[in-house]
Design a protein around this nucleic acid. Structure first.
Lengths: 136, 136
DNA sequence: TATTGTTATACTCTATAACTATA
DNA sequence: TATAGTTATAGAGTATAACAATA
């Protein structure tokens, strides 16, 4: 049975396959892919507001509320008011969040490697570079 | 503002960007990307049932019903009972469907070219090859 | 007046389960 | 018994609009 070769199909199903790998990889840490992405951005240096995090991920601020709610319930992140602008929530990792992000990052690295395992190492690196260049 | 470099993020946003290009490209033909994909599969040779089409696209048979309903309402495809197995619907393009698919294909080709325009021609071809190899 | 976070709401896409008709 | 199509339904995931607090 032939597989469609359109870019839209390929990109969508590449995404599905990667999700199938990262999902189980993250499950032991009680995270899904979206939560991991949010956690990873919050782990970046510099105080970030909910809006900052959402903008880096292309996620609406109303969607961020529930995402941060979930991570806060799991004690992975904490909200505190921004000292200079009390409209903003600064979101930061807790100690537990830092440890979890570290382990989850390794798990996702492995899932990405498995996803790319059909390519030789040079091609795998190239694929990532081309993808970055496309979005840059 | 730094952009996440995780594969999941890159793949998802590449998909979003392509969708933003194919959507307007297909709008003149009254199609969205999903409908175009279905139309393109139905345009392949050989009598195909709804289930066949869905399996090639990774779409559940219950989802196919509504998709084919929509295309039938637009007179782009027609259902007829399979002569040898009356449980099956054979789905085929109408004349209008064939013409529309032809024009829509050109529009999508242009949208894909625009999506890849940030890469040199060789790299664009390479990107598609790597993507196919990953899913193969 | 504009911005951040919040809430309520609605919309899209999809899958699951149960039904029918056929095999 | 199993399969193809259908229907009803429910679950994700997301965005939009309106509101409160703050700037």
């Amino acid at each position: 049975m032939s597989r469609p070769r359109r870019l839209g199909y390929l990109l969508k199903h590449a995404n599905l396959r990667l999700t199938d790998l990262t999902g189980p990889a993250l499950a032991p840490y009680g995270l899904d892919g979206r939560e991991f992405a949010v956690l990873a951005v919050i782990g970046e240096p510099g105080p970030l507001s909910q809006l900052d995090v959402g903008q880096r991920l292309g996620v609406d601020r109303s969607t961020m509320v529930g995402l941060v709610d979930g991570l806060e319930r799991k004690r992975l992140v904490a909200r505190r008011p921004h000292p200079d602008d009390r409209r903003k929530n600064v979101v930061e990792l807790t100690e537990h969040g830092r440890e979890t992000l570290e382990k989850a990052t390794r798990a996702v690295d492995e899932a990405e490697a498995a996803f790319l395992s059909g390519l030789e190492e040079g091609d795998a690196r190239l694929f990532r570079v081309l993808l970055e260049r496309l979005l840059g």
